[in-house]
Amino acid sequence: MGCFHSTASKQFPGHEDPVILASQTAFSVSEVEALFELYKSISSSVIDDGLINKEEFQLALFKNRKKENLFANRIFELFDVKKKGVIDFGDFVKSLSVFHPNAPHEDKIDFSFKLYDLDGTGFIERQEVKQMLIALLCESGMKLADETVEIILDKTFLEADVNQDGKIDKSEWQNFVRQNPSLLKIMTLPYLRDITTTFPSFVFHSEVDEI
């Protein structure tokens, strides 16, 4: 295999073989290569170092590098699999794979649990859920009295926190999501089905026979 590997691995630190990435994710080799086209554009948007920093991540998502947001920060932290403060190509593909329509349901449940477990303790605590609710209210301009927020939290924890210890563990989250499947809607990106048609230029850079 020629230029995809030799050139890409020099210019893109942490670059991984698309064939291996395809075998580890819900993507085909062609889709991984198409994602590389997207990755190249994002990772060179502010600093052309072959890695995605938080500013580039937010610029790609919101077209606005200044927007600070609790959820965007948390998603960046989860995409930064190796905890280096930047996202490399392997991190990007493996994380996006969870959002593929064909990705295992369990992977989506795991990712959503980590997303809402803001401090990574292994539990979704009431204070974290309140913090996220307040962030959502600020972002949307919706106004709810603190008492209403507490009522929503009471009701949510009454349903989700089966052992009533004030925090939601992984198994409680799995049960809660089964009862409320719409909660996983944010975990599927239909765009990922069409990634090769969205970034067709990947065929000009591919050296893999599958295409």
Partner: peptide, 29 residues
């Protein structure tokens, strides 16, 4: 307080409305 109110949305349904949890921005040129 009436935590059993059947009309009440749960906290995660509300949180899921955040536009910042929508990654489709990556694919919009």
């Amino acid at each position: 307080k009436n935590p059993d109110s059947p009309t009440l949305i749960n906290a995660f349904q509300l949180i899921g409305m955040s536009s910042c949890l929508d990654l489709s921005g990556f694919f919009e040129k």
